[in-house]
Design a protein around this nucleic acid. Sequence first.
DNA 1: CAACGGAGGTAAAACATTTTACTAGATGGC
DNA 2: GCCATCTAGTAAAATGTTTTACCTCCGTTG
Lengths: 350, 350
Amino acid sequence: MANARSNIRDVARESGVSLTTVSLILNNNDERISESTRQRVLSAMEKLSYTPSRLARGLPTRRANTLAVLVPALQHAFADVYFGEIISGIYEAAANRGYRILLEVARREYVRRKEYLTLLEDCSVDGILFIGATEEHRWLTEFHETDKPLIIVNNHFKQWDLHHVVCDYTAAGALAADYLIDLGHRNIGHICGPSSMVVTAEELTEGFLSRLAERGFPLSDRMVVEGQYLVETGKLACDELLQRNPQLTAIFAANDKMALGAYQSIRQHDRQPGKEISIVGCDDIPTAALADPPLTTIRMNFFEIGAESCQQLISMIEKKADDNGRKTISERLPIALIERESCCPPQVPA
Amino acid sequence: MANARSNIRDVARESGVSLTTVSLILNNNDERISESTRQRVLSAMEKLSYTPSRLARGLPTRRANTLAVLVPALQHAFADVYFGEIISGIYEAAANRGYRILLEVARREYVRRKEYLTLLEDCSVDGILFIGATEEHRWLTEFHETDKPLIIVNNHFKQWDLHHVVCDYTAAGALAADYLIDLGHRNIGHICGPSSMVVTAEELTEGFLSRLAERGFPLSDRMVVEGQYLVETGKLACDELLQRNPQLTAIFAANDKMALGAYQSIRQHDRQPGKEISIVGCDDIPTAALADPPLTTIRMNFFEIGAESCQQLISMIEKKADDNGRKTISERLPIALIERESCCPPQVPA
DNA sequence: CAACGGAGGTAAAACATTTTACTAGATGGC
DNA sequence: GCCATCTAGTAAAATGTTTTACCTCCGTTG
C-alpha cells in the first residue's frame, strides 16, 4: 500500500509531461528541455520521492554500472590483507565513478560453468577485475582474443597479452639487492615465491638475482629456496637456507608473511633477526611495521594497484563506444623501499 | 553480429513452444510441463547457448538475488581482518544459496542521501548486512519500525530492536576473568573498547568486571582504561595502566590489536609480556598466533558470525511471502578461550 | 508567401523476463 | 450423454526504463 513505489510514469503524470521528458531529464540530456519544465519535473520527483530503478535502467542500456571483483578460491580469501587492500582501492575508484562492486569467488564449479562469462552476458556486470591470478587460471585465455572487459590485477601472463596492471616486481628485486649489497652483505639467501605459478614471483627473483650478479656477487642456486607465500612456508624455507649456509647474514623474502616466518626460524636457531641476520620483506603489509623488529620491506601499494586497475577498466568500458585502437593495457606501478629495523651491516665474527 | 545474445523468445521459437513454457521450465515450475517438451526446450537452450538475463528477471520479480554488505567509512575498510573474516563468511553462505554480494561503504554522502534505502527500493538488493555499526549509525533507526530486511552483524542497539547476530561478549568477558583469577592474578588491568559507542564493548567489559566482582576481586575504575581498538591506542592505554599500578601482573584487552599494543608498551617499560605481565586478548585474529609470545585470546569466530547473519537474512527474505510472526532476530554465538603463551601465574617478587 | 530550421517536446518500440488467467482437449463418474 | 476435472499448455499484461524517429509550433529567410 504505502509501498506503491513510484515510477517514471507517475512522475510524468504528476508533472504533466511525457515519459520521454522525464527520462531525458534523469539522464541530464538537458539540451532539449526548458528550464521551467525541468524544475517542474524535478519537484514532482521530489514530491513522489522517486528513485529510478537500476534494474529497469540496465535493461535497455545493457549496462549494470557494476564491476565484478573475482578472487581465487582460497580459504577466507577476503580476510587476506593483500586482497583486502586491493579491494579497498578498487572500491574507492569505482565509487568515485558511480560503479558498484560485486564479489565473486572463482571456485571450481564456477569456472567449469564459465560463470565469469555469464556474468558479462547476463549484463550483471560491465567488467571484471581478477585478483590473485596464477598459472592455474589458464581459462583466462578465453579473454584473450575477444575484447571482453577484464583486467588482471597485479599479475599477468607471458603467453597471452591480457590487460593488466602490476607493481614493478623486477625493480623491487633490484632494489632489495642494492640495499643488501650496500649494507655490506655477501652471504645472502633468498626465499622466492612460487615462480612456476606466478609471473610476478619470477620477476621479483629475476630482478634480485640479476642485480646481484651485475654488482659482482652472483647468488648460487642453492641459496634460493621456494615458499608458498605463507608464514609457515617462509619458516621452512629459512630453516633450509640456514642449514645450507650457516654463515648467512641476510635474507630477502618474496613477501612479508614469509619474512615473518623467517623471523621464527632464525629465533629457533638462536640467532637474532635484524641483528645477526638481516631480513628484507616485500609488500609492506600492516603487520610488517608491528613485527619485532619492525620489518624493512618493499612497499607495493596495493591500494593504488586496485584503484588504478579499476580506473583502467572503467575507461575501457566507457570508451568501448568509440572503439578506438584496442591496445592491451599494461601498466607498471612504482615501488619503494621502507627502511625499518630488520637490517644492519653484517656483524664481523668476534 | 555474433553478439546476437539469444533470449527466451528465441528459445521458444526454436523449440516451437510459447514464452511462458520456456519461462516455467526455467523456473522449475515443472508440474505443468511434459517431460518431452521439457527436453526439447532444454536442448534448444543448449543449442542457442542461452543464459537468462538476471536484470530482466529481477524486473518483474522485484528480486535481485543479491545482498549488500555495508561497512562504515574507515580507511581501507576491506583490508581489515575483522571485516574480511566476516565478509568471507557472508560470501560463503550467500554463494551456497545462490545469492550475490554487493559491497557498499556508508560514507557521509551515502548516508545523507539514504542510498541504503534506495538500494532496497531500487531492487538492486534484497537485503542488507551492516558490519561495524556503532552509536554513530543512529540512522539505522529507520529500519526499526518498517520490516526491511537488514541485519546488524556482530553488534546491536539497546534502544531499538533491530535484527542482529552477535558473539556472546558478556560470556567472553567472564571467561577472561575466570582464567586470570584461576591463574592467581589479583593485580589486574583492563583495556576496554569504546563502550559509549559500541554496545558489545560495553558488554565485554561488563562481563569481565562483574565476574571479577562475583569472585571477590572487584576491579577499581582506575584500572580500566579505554582504547579505540587500534594498536597504538592499546599501547597508550597500557602505558597508563602501568603508571597507575606498577604492580600489575595481568591485562585483559578488548581486542587483539590493543593486546599487541600492550606488548609494545610492556617492552618499553622493560618488562616481559607473557612472563612478568600476562595478557589476554580478544578476537583471535591471525596475527595473534604469530605474535611473540603467541597471544592467549578469546576466539570470536567472525567467519561463523558472517555466515550465520547471512543465513538469517536470507531466511527473512524468503519467508517474507508467508509473513509469519515478525519476531526480531537476535542470535548470540558462543566463544572460546584459546590458550597460547602470553599468560602464566603471577611471579612472586624475589 | 513558401520553405526552413530550431526549440521543445512526444509516441512507441525495445529491452527480457514473470505471472495470471485462460483454453482446448482428454478422461472419468454417474 | 453430460458435467466436472485434469493436463499441457498459451496469450497478454506487467515490470520500469531508454531511445529513435517523429511532430508541432513559431520565428526567420529568400
